[in-house]
Amino acid sequence: MSTAYCFDYDGTLTTTELLPSIAAELGLSGEIALLTKLTMDGLIPFEDSMRLRVALLSQVETSKVEDIVQEIPVDERIASFIGSNPDNCFVISGNLDIWLRKALAPLNCEYFLSTAYRSNGKITLTSVLNKAAAVTVLRKQGFERIIAIGDGANDVPMFERADISIAYGGVHSPAAAAIAASDFVVHDGGTLCSLLRTL
Score class of each variant (00 low, 15 high):
70 Q>L: 12
186 V>E: 08
61 E>M: 06
15 T>N: 10
195 L>R: 08
144 E>L: 12
163 D>R: 09
81 F>V: 08
166 I>H: 04
5 Y>G: 02
52 L>Y: 04
137 V>H: 12
105 A>Q: 15
170 G>W: 03
180 A>K: 15
36 T>K: 00
27 G>T: 07
177 A>N: 05
105 A>C: 06
59 Q>C: 07
176 A>K: 15
183 D>F: 05
125 L>V: 15
179 I>C: 07
108 N>V: 05
108 N>L: 10
11 G>D: 02
176 A>C: 08
67 D>E: 15
169 G>K: 08
131 K>C: 08
171 V>N: 07
87 D>C: 11
145 R>D: 00
153 A>L: 03
84 S>M: 11
32 I>T: 05
55 A>L: 12
54 V>I: 12
68 I>N: 02
81 F>I: 09
66 E>K: 10
149 I>E: 03
194 S>H: 10
127 S>Q: 14
83 G>S: 11
114 S>E: 01
7 F>Y: 06
102 K>W: 01
142 G>V: 10
35 L>N: 05
155 D>T: 06
102 K>S: 13
135 V>K: 02
56 L>G: 03
51 R>P: 03
151 D>P: 04
34 L>Q: 15
121 G>M: 06
114 S>I: 05
148 A>G: 08
139 R>T: 09
14 T>S: 14
170 G>R: 03
5 Y>A: 05
16 T>F: 04
103 A>N: 05
110 E>A: 13
58 S>R: 06
59 Q>N: 12
11 G>R: 04
43 L>C: 09
129 L>K: 04
181 A>E: 02
38 L>E: 15
89 C>F: 02
87 D>S: 14
102 K>V: 04
161 R>S: 12
29 S>C: 06
111 Y>N: 10
199 L>Q: 11
139 R>D: 09
5 Y>Q: 05
22 I>N: 02
99 W>E: 00
2 S>R: 14
138 L>T: 03
84 S>N: 14
119 S>V: 01
143 F>E: 01
113 L>F: 00
7 F>I: 02
31 E>K: 12
8 D>A: 10
174 P>M: 11
194 S>K: 12
194 S>T: 14
76 E>F: 04
52 L>Q: 14
50 M>I: 13
164 I>A: 10
180 A>E: 15
113 L>H: 00
83 G>M: 08
120 N>A: 15
154 N>V: 06
70 Q>R: 14
132 A>D: 14
189 G>T: 06
82 I>W: 03
57 L>W: 01
182 S>Q: 06
86 P>G: 11
138 L>S: 05
112 F>Y: 14
51 R>H: 13
83 G>R: 07
157 P>S: 12
85 N>G: 10
156 V>Y: 03
9 Y>G: 00
45 P>K: 11
68 I>S: 05
147 I>C: 05
46 F>Y: 15
179 I>N: 05
113 L>C: 07
136 T>L: 12
92 I>C: 06
119 S>A: 14
2 S>C: 07
57 L>E: 04
191 T>Y: 03
49 S>A: 15
19 L>G: 01
45 P>L: 12
31 E>C: 07
4 A>D: 06
104 L>D: 01
164 I>W: 01
190 G>R: 11
137 V>F: 10
141 Q>W: 10
79 A>Q: 07
22 I>P: 01
118 R>Y: 03
137 V>D: 12
79 A>C: 10
101 R>S: 13
183 D>N: 15
73 P>T: 14
